[in-house]
């Protein structure tokens, strides 16, 4: 725990070493998110769908995914840029230290520039859920918490799976971003707009529907099934799976060194 705080403070120090660029990055990061949001909104209004989908539903779908994504971008930067860690030999350095490797990869890079996105997404989430939910119940509040938590867990898993690819090939690793960025891109729209077959892919392959599509159903009162409240936590399966896959890759690294 002390080490985590230490990592957090050391990276903050690094960020504040260059104040002006850091400030511009904060602005540009959050600007980019709002531009995406704007594009989503633009499409819904062009297709006259704002009656079918309320602005709050759009906002809530969008902010859930972006919160989870920004969280992972900020704190899992080491996994996001894992190729660099391998190429420049940093991974070897981490492996000669007597600490958990996941903890050290987390500590290798923390991207405070994403903080603006994270907070803005959280703000949108709170605002839109407050407006979307007609009658608050404990279950719904609990579900909101689970959506945030589940989102973080899911994207953690996706980032770790992405990093695992780097054990096998370093070249052209941008393909990996397809999983994370692509998932985000799909799910920033309310997912009931998609065909059912596509939704199934995003339930059973990349289970992104369970962090916003199904929970929003519950929040809007379309269902009262209690199971929905805990659905987002199933993302744990993805995280467990990804850790196993990553450990497997790490073993390969231990035996081939590349």
């Amino acid at each position: 725990m002390k080490l985590i705080l230490n990592y957090l403070s050391i990276h903050l120090k690094v960020s504040l070493e260059y104040r002006l660029p850091f400030f511009f990055s904060l602005v540009s990061q959050v600007l980019y998110m709002f531009i995406e949001l704007f594009a989503v909104y633009a499409l819904f209004s062009k297709f006259n769908l704002l009656g079918v989908y309320s602005i709050d539903e759009i906002l809530l779908s969008f902010s859930t995914v972006w919160f989870a994504f920004a969280f992972s971008e900020m704190f899992l930067r080491g996994f996001d840029n894992f190729a660099r860690l391998i190429v420049n030999g940093s991974l070897d350095l981490l492996l000669v230290r007597p600490r958990n490797i996941y903890l050290q990869i987390f500590g290798s890079d923390i991207c405070y520039e994403k903080l603006s996105r994270l907070l803005a997404a959280l703000g949108l989430f709170i605002y839109s859920s407050g407006k979307l939910i007609k009658h608050f119940t404990i279950g719904k509040v609990l579900l909101l918490g689970n959506m945030l938590l589940g989102g973080i867990i899911l994207f953690m898993g996706l980032f770790i799976i992405g990093a695992t690819f780097c054990f096998y090939t370093i070249q052209g690793i941008e393909v990996v971003n397809v999983i994370t960025d692509g998932g985000k891109q799909f799910a920033e729209y309310p997912m009931r707009i998609y065909k059912k077959s596509l939704r199934l892919v995003f339930t059973f392959v990349i289970p992104i529907t369970i962090i916003n599509y199904y929970p929003i159903d519950y929040l809007m009162g379309n269902t009262t099934n209690i199971m929905y409240i805990f659905l987002p936590l199933l993302t744990f399966i993805v995280l467990l799976l990804s850790i196993n896959v990553f450990n497997f890759g790490l073993r390969k690294y231990h035996s081939t060194g590349s």
Binding site: K2, L3, N6, Y7, I10, K13, V14, E17, Y18, N88, G89, S90, D92, L93, R97, P98, R99, Q104
Partner: peptide, 21 residues
């Protein structure tokens, strides 16, 4: 390959290593 943090004073890197070990 350096184990020191490029942008911050040496002592901060030392402190971090202190908690790592």
């Amino acid at each position: 390959k350096s184990q020191l943090w490029w942008d911050i004073p040496v002592i901060d890197s030392f402190e971090l290593l202190k908690s790592i070990y």
